[in-house]
């Protein structure tokens, strides 16, 4: 009279397509290859990455603002915002600054390096909701990286939006990212307003912090313009706080401002708690939050 309990295999079937509710999607990694390594500045490199399996590649899609987990076996895994157009199903682009272990090894990785990708994860900028409106895209430093995806969306659907302006500030001219795209943005009738904290004498643009240029822009627009304006903001906390406060005072409702928060996720799937702000998972409820939600996240500001 013995009782050998049955062993339950929790994943009896192999799923081909991975849904968030599938147990085997948890550690599923797309194998991908770095197809291009393009040095943007002294610190940042733009990587073009292609999922190797053609079928997986076709099925992989994301929304502007979402992130992926990039893995180098044996080195580590970290979250990165996707910095390319969601309509490009061939490659994704990631702009990465070498600051930690993984990113330093990555900065020495040659073209052809095979990496792992999990995702995409997180919330996105609600571009469809902004159709017919004006958009202010405001980026400080590396904050331009995740905004390049909504900018690409705007370029591809330019007639769906009214006035679009990019306000972008960095420490100095050597830190400016994606310089090769500025002319294209302008040609697509996207206003580009650059500001540097510190500038060489040859710099003809404004010097100072982002609110300085932003103030001029919002002052020059009338109330009906502001009423129909959405803002997308990414940058250090001190920057998005002052920017959003200014925009809120000028009359943009909090639920029309979107902030992209950056944290160090270890899983991307609402398990490890490393990205929690207050007790909200940045990986599930974010990284894109509307400003009202950010204001209500304890310890975000």
């Amino acid at each position: 009279m013995d009782h050998r309990l049955a062993f339950h295999n929790v994943i009896p079937h192999k799923h081909k397509y991975h849904r968030t509710s599938d147990l085997d999607s948890f550690e599923f990694t797309y194998k991908a290859e770095i197809t291009s390594v393009y040095k943007l500045t002294e610190q940042e490199i733009l990587y073009r990455i292609r999922i190797m399996d053609p079928e997986d590649r076709r099925h992989f899609s994301f929304h502007p603002g979402q992130f992926i987990m990039l893995e180098l076996p044996g080195i580590g895994e970290a979250p990165f915002s996707i910095s390319s157009s969601p309509s490009n199903h061939e490659d994704i682009e990631l702009c990465i600054r070498a600051v930690g272990n993984l990113t330093t090894v990555l900065s020495r990785a040659p073209r052809g390096t095979r990496v792992g990708i999990r995702g995409p994860f997180g919330t996105s900028f609600p571009m469809e909701r902004m159709h017919g409106g004006n958009i202010l895209l405001i980026a400080g430093g590396l904050g331009l990286v995740p905004l390049r995806s909504p900018i690409a969306h705007v370029q591809e659907h330019r007639s769906m939006f009214d006035h679009v302006d990019i306000v972008y500030g960095t420490k100095d001219a050597s830190r400016l990212l994606f310089k090769f795209q500025y002319e294209m943005w302008k040609k697509d009738d996207i206003g580009l307003h650059l500001i540097l904290e510190k500038a060489e004498p040859s710099w003809t643009g404004p010097v100072g912090y982002i609110p300085k240029v932003l103030e001029e822009i919002v002052k020059s627009r009338d109330d009906s313009f502001i009423h129909n304006t959405y803002a997308i903001v990414c940058g250090p906390p001190v920057m998005f706080k002052s920017v959003c406060t200014m925009l809120a005072e000028r009359g943009i409702p909090m639920q029309k401002m979107f902030v992209d928060l950056e944290r160090r996720m270890h899983c991307g799937m609402g398990k490890c708690c490393r990205c929690n702000v207050g007790s909200t998972y940045t990986c599930l409820s974010g990284p894109v939050f509307d400003y009202w939600t950010v204001m209500n996240l304890k310890e975000a500001i």
């Binding site: 309990l5 062993f7 339950h8 929790v10 994943i11 968030t20 509710s21 147990l23 948890f26 550690e27």
Partner: peptide
Amino acid sequence: KVLMGPVYPMPYYAAKRKNMF
């Protein structure tokens, strides 16, 4: 609720939990 819910259930936990009397 967290580890076996509908959003990204964690198989490392689920496999152990489902095999527990």
